[in-house]
Amino acid sequence: MPIVVLIIIGAAAGFLATRLMRIEASIPATLLIGIVGALLGGLILRSLASVMGWMSGFVGAVLGALLVIWIWKTYLRR
């Protein structure tokens, strides 16, 4: 169940992250960025989630999506 929640949160986080980083991405790319970022951020910030609740999971998802966008822009998009 937690992975399904991370995927749903990741879709919203991907949308927010693409807007914060000011990139134009297709809807599937935005969803993929958000989902991968949510999974990464969710794993990294799992300890905070137990302390602060679901909001830290959303923050982790956004941070993870921002990291994925940075890696994508820096290394993959040339």
Rank of each mutant, 00 (worst) to 15 (best):
W72G: 01
F15C: 10
T74I: 06
R46I: 10
I71F: 09
V62A: 11
V62H: 14
L63S: 02
I71E: 04
L67S: 01
G41N: 00
I9V: 15
K73D: 07
G53W: 09
G14V: 02
V36L: 04
L67K: 00
L16G: 09
L20F: 15
M52G: 12
I35L: 04
F58K: 10
R46C: 00
F15N: 08
M55P: 14
G41F: 03
I9N: 09
A12V: 13
T18K: 08
I27C: 05
I23C: 09
I27A: 10
G34L: 11
L48F: 13
G60R: 00
L67T: 10
M21H: 00
L63V: 13
L48D: 02
A25Y: 06
V59A: 09
V5F: 12
G10I: 14
I23E: 07
A38Y: 04
K73C: 07
P28V: 12
L76M: 11
R46K: 14
L31H: 08
A12C: 11
L32F: 04
F15I: 13
V4G: 07
G57W: 15
T18I: 13
F58D: 04
G10N: 03
F15P: 03
I69N: 09
G37I: 06
S56L: 15
M21F: 01
I33K: 09
R19Y: 11
I27H: 05
Y75E: 11
G42H: 12
I3G: 02
F15V: 03
G57C: 06
I23A: 00
S56I: 13
A38L: 12
V68R: 05
I69Q: 02
F15K: 06
V36C: 03
I71R: 05
L39N: 01
L32R: 01
I8W: 11
A49Q: 15
A65F: 05
I35G: 07
Y75G: 05
S56R: 14
I3D: 11
K73R: 06
M52C: 09
G57R: 14
S47T: 12
A13E: 06
L48S: 13
L32P: 01
L43W: 14
V5T: 08
V5Q: 08
K73M: 05
L76I: 11
L32Y: 01
V59N: 11
T18D: 07
V4M: 12
L43V: 06
I3S: 14
V36H: 03
L31P: 03
L43G: 09
S47E: 14
I71D: 03
V4C: 08
G10P: 10
G34H: 01
F15Q: 04
W70K: 03
I27E: 03
M52N: 10
I33S: 10
P2T: 15
M55D: 06
G57L: 14
R46N: 08
L45W: 14
V4F: 08
M52T: 13
L20P: 13
I44A: 10
I7R: 01
A49P: 02
M55H: 13
L48N: 00
Y75M: 07
G64N: 07
L6D: 04
T74L: 03
M55E: 15
P2V: 14
Y75W: 08
V5C: 01
L43I: 15
A38E: 10
K73Q: 09
I35N: 01
I71N: 08
G10V: 12
A65H: 05
R19Q: 10
A38M: 11
I3Q: 04
G34I: 14
I3H: 07
